[in-house]
């Protein structure tokens, strides 16, 4: 446990002493700020219509917060490969992995420590969305509970992609390769449920179940469904388990 914390701390530090953390946070702040602005803009436009007697009841949660949270998922699809690509690839190239492996530390402690470090970085990025949404509280009274579940969902979903990215980073020495592959795999995991649009056989259902977005739906509505939590947690555990095994196999393969 102590070792996990040591490695996690080191990862967080290395994000924040390099430009990576600030660049990612800046990019995210701009893009998510734009998305929030657009969502609020639409909402205002509609509410003028509502005052004139057209349209249904207005709901900040439904019209602003939910789309913003869904969009955040899309941005993280692009940012997560950039967070995870360096995790192992960099240490392999510079030879520092040799230090970690020859230290009295278990393999899973290295993997979990690194993943937690990446998750902390991702949490810092998500926190910027909280800033955007908190503005809404100044002018209205949105329900905070869907926001909380939305954040829980974003963390779980991000955790899955981070675990996938951690695994992929461990398969190569090349950061660009790791980033590109993570992006590809994340995008596929994101869009698996498109199958159900035109197919309804067993395979389509299985693939749709594996889709990350399908499980996010309920979180953004303010519902924590144990089915979805179990799905996300099991993807995270599987990803980290595979990373640990592949770290071990590096030695057997030399």
């Amino acid at each position: 446990m102590k070792n996990i914390l040591t490695i996690c701390q080191k990862e967080i530090k290395s994000y924040f002493v390099s430009p990576i953390a600030y660049a990612l946070m800046a990019i995210y702040a701009i893009v998510s700020g734009f998305f929030s602005y657009v969502a609020v803009g639409y909402f205002l436009d509609r509410s003028i219509g509502a005052m004139a007697g057209r349209g249904g009841p207005m709901d900040v949660n439904e019209w602003v917060i939910r789309p913003v949270i869904m969009n955040v998922g899309v941005i993280s699809l692009f940012l997560i490969p950039m967070i995870t690509m360096r995790l192992f690839a960099e240490e392999k190239r510079s030879g520092t992995l040799e230090l970690l492996i020859t230290s009295p530390v278990r393999d899973y402690e290295i993997v979990v420590g690194k993943w937690l470090g990446a998750l902390a970085m991702y949490t810092c990025i998500l926190a910027l969305t909280a800033v955007n949404l908190s503005v809404l509280f100044l002018f209205g009274s949105p329900d905070w509970r869907p926001i909380a579940t939305g954040f829980a969902g974003m963390l779980l979903q991000g955790g899955c992609l981070l675990a996938v990215g951690t695994f992929i980073s461990n398969t190569t020495k090349n950061q660009i390769m790791a980033g590109a592959m993570t992006f590809g795999v994340s995008l596929l995991m994101w869009t698996f449920d498109w199958f159900t649009g035109f197919k309804s056989d067993a395979w389509a259902k299985v693939l749709a179940y594996l889709s990350l977005t399908a499980h996010f739906e309920s979180f953004s509505k303010g519902v924590i469904d144990s089915k979805d939590v179990i799905f996300y947690v099991s993807v995270i555990v599987l990803g980290l388990f595979l990373t640990t095994r592949s770290l071990e196999s590096l030695r057997w393969r030399g």
Partner: peptide, 24 residues
């Protein structure tokens, strides 16, 4: 163990690096 290329993290300060390794 000192491998052929010293396993150093370029972004750390020397004392910070030694502390990290000591903790490990």
């Amino acid at each position: 163990y000192l491998p052929e290329t010293p396993p150093l993290y370029p972004e750390m300060e020397v004392a910070e690096y030694l502390q990290f390794v000591g903790k490990l």
